[in-house]
């Protein structure tokens, strides 16, 4: 199994006496579309925080692209190819959309010797793909909710990731907007980017994912194809409240 892009091995996380994650292990293959589901408070975002380096994990190891990244700070993980969006969008409010993406290009894509013009060109290419091309010079504080979600994905893309983690990028969006964001994610995946998607909207997860993992109370209760997971008794009990 040396072909795993991301290998999470026995990762645990505690907040004081509360165990948020308990020995989570999962392998993500290059190019995979991976869905992460679970009821509120089951540890999905905590797991993503441990993978992206926002939180240090308390036990276990995380390997990315064959390298142990368990102890690396978040910015180094981003530079190695792990980019993410946030459940509650975190734009750089004082900046335009263009500048938001330039932060990621300036700091994550280092050593490529990009000129200002090349960096700008790359930003516009990403914005075009994501459907924000007309908004480049708009202040990020002026964006609508769906535009903010897209900008989060665009900013993650500007870091030239190998693995993109989308943390509830569709939460609170209308039906057609969900489809828009889903299309964006599918398009990025078609270009070879591995995607982990956390989502509450079941229909979206099932349509998107090749493989789904369900967490409950910090443990993996089921992993498999979307159909297998949906059919699982434990999942239905924990998540669907059956």
């Amino acid at each position: 199994m040396s072909e795993a892009l991301l290998r999470v091995d026995g990762v645990s996380k505690r907040f004081g006496g509360f165990t948020a994650l308990e020995g989570i292990s999962v392998d993500i293959r290059p190019g995979e579309r991976f869905g992460l589901i679970g009821p509120n408070g089951s540890g999905k975002t905590t797991l993503i925080n441990c993978i992206s380096g926002v939180l240090p994990s308390d036990g276990g190891s995380i390997r990315f692209n064959g390298e142990d990244i368990t102890r690396l700070p978040a910015y180094k993980r981003t530079r190695r190819g792990i980019a993410r969006s946030f459940q509650v969008p975190r734009p750089f409010k004082s900046m335009t959309v263009l500048e938001n993406l330039l932060v990621a290009i300036d700091f994550a894509v280092i050593g490529h010797g990009l000129s200002t013009r090349q960096a700008d060109a790359e930003v516009f290419e990403i914005l075009d793909k994501i459907g924000l091309a007309g908004k480049a010079h708009v202040a990020s504080s002026q964006l609508s909710q769906v535009e903010l979600r897209k900008m989060e994905l665009a900013r993650a893309m500007a870091a030239r990731p190998k693995l993109l983690i989308s943390d509830e990028a569709m939460a609170g969006l209308a039906g057609s907007e969900v489809d828009e964001v889903l299309d964006v994610l599918l398009k990025l995946n078609a270009e070879g980017i591995t995607v982990i998607m956390i989502e509450h909207i079941m229909q979206a997860v099932m349509r998107f994912s090749e493989r789904v993992m369900c967490l409950d109370a910090g443990r993996v209760i089921c992993e498999g194809t979307p159909q297998q997971v949906m059919a699982d008794k434990g999942v239905q009990e924990a998540y669907l409240g059956a």
Partner: peptide, 17 residues
């Protein structure tokens, strides 16, 4: 500026905060 606006987002965009 990115740090001032949002430190966690900055760190996750590759900024060595």
């Amino acid at each position: 500026r990115a740090i001032r606006d949002d430190e966690i987002a900055a760190e996750c965009s590759g900024v060595p905060t």
